[in-house]
Design a protein around this nucleic acid. Structure first.
Lengths: 233, 233
DNA sequence: GCAAAAGTGTTGTCCTTACACCCATGC
DNA sequence: GCATGGGTGTAAGGACAACACTTTTGC
């Protein structure tokens, strides 16, 4: 087999546009929310779509996703993870566009975060019906991904304020997973992990007995390099 | 904000080539293997690379990966899963090429599988040093992905013959995970799952006491729709 | 009979689950 | 004082980890 020249080879390849779409989850009012923008395409007038943009020449795809986040929310240093690609040839009405979906979690009440663009809104995940493009499918895939990830990693804390009560934490898990959990066992579970810092502070302005406030001990968690082996299916 | 025309918009996007690269794992001689091909690029002369090809116009990316598998191994209906994209702008010496990595598992001794191309070889995963492109990084990512997946899903059986002994199964897990497991506990674990069919057959031609042969009960496994909730990190 | 691997049980520990009562606060 | 949610303990069952000896076969 004759050896090939890389540039000639790549020149012969079909080329297509690649975009990133960010599924940005938040949590408010005991509901899982997602940040959406009104589609600016004629065909999808009035429908909501994920926050996305095209990947530039010489831009890594992860970098494009962080750029979208920064441009839309003004925040960098946010949790972001690649989920998977969506590539149906007709998924975009304007031609062939492959998209890479990213999942992101952020605290909806974060001070430095201002939604200036009034075409941008938080939507309750459970109430979304139709969306532009295949974004509904992407959203559902990312929600399932989140349900799995949140059980294996301390991701949920990215959706909560710095200081939170155990009730808020439990509400969040219940909202993401769509189940009800036993309060005592939930608290015992987190107590046994020893990864919550008791701040010796109390909730304010609640119409009932205030709960204690906690922080997640990321530092301690990151020191744990345990490699877990457990066949289970 | 004025509405946009989809075709004009997509026409303005930068375009790039997309490839798929398949990390095809096999198991033989108590070692985890990966199927590699000699690079046909001048720059990487002599180095090994993953099996890949460019994604065609109007071809879904998953379909491209299945096509690569079929072209190289003559097999369809094989386990295949998308892992993630690799997009460093300079990862391909011939220009901008984004690749989507896929992971695939197949039985190395499958009868209908013939490696005709003598540039194609099975390599022990642990003995691979340098590879073409960023394929070493892709391989490592896929290996980690496999280590996780094999603990949560009955994937390992795709690497074994239809009929296998518990010793073979355990050797496979040990090879993938890079650990030693207690034989008694391993057998108890699989016994308690009740997902192995005892074939009442014995190994043949082994230089020691032969073991019983089993099949995995995919039918029973697929009927189990349990949704597992268990926070653990 | 020897080498090599198959096959098997028990015990302690830990994790998970199910479940009910009193407490602190705002109104 | 009443409504609301905060906070706690226990007992039973199941899963996991550690551990050693006997059995079967090929040579």
């Amino acid at each position: 087999m004759p050896l090939k020249n890389g540039e000639q080879l790549v020149a012969s390849y079909p080329k297509m546009a690649i975009t990133v779409d960010c599924v940005i989850f938040g949590f408010d009012d005991n509901e899982l929310k997602v940040l959406l923008i009104r589609s600016d395409l004629e065909k999808y007038q009035g429908l909501w779509s994920l926050l996305g943009d095209v990947v530039k020449d010489n831009e890594e795809i992860d970098a494009a996703a962080y750029r979208v986040l920064d441009q839309r929310t003004g925040m960098s240093d946010i949790y972001l993870d690649q989920v998977r690609s969506f590539s149906h040839p007709n998924r975009h009405p304007g031609g062939r566009v492959v998209t890479i979906a990213y999942c992101s979690l952020l605290n909806i009440k974060h001070h430095s975060f201002n939604i200036i663009d009034n075409e941008l809104h938080w939507h309750s995940v459970s109430s979304i019906s139709e969306m532009a493009f295949d974004h509904k499918e992407i959203l559902e895939t990312c929600h399932q991904w989140l349900q799995k990830m949140v059980q294996e990693n301390p991701l949920a804390f990215n959706l909560l304020p710095d200081k939170f009560s155990l009730r808020e934490l439990q509400n969040l898990y219940e909202a993401i997973l769509g189940v009800e959990l036993d309060r005592r066992n939930f608290r015992k579970k987190f107590a046994s992990m020893k990864l919550l810092i008791d701040l010796d502070e109390m909730e304010q302005d609640v119409p009932h007995r205030p709960g204690k406030l906690y922080q997640f001990n990321f530092e301690k968690y990151n020191k744990n390099t345990r490699k877990w082996i457990g066949i289970d299916f």
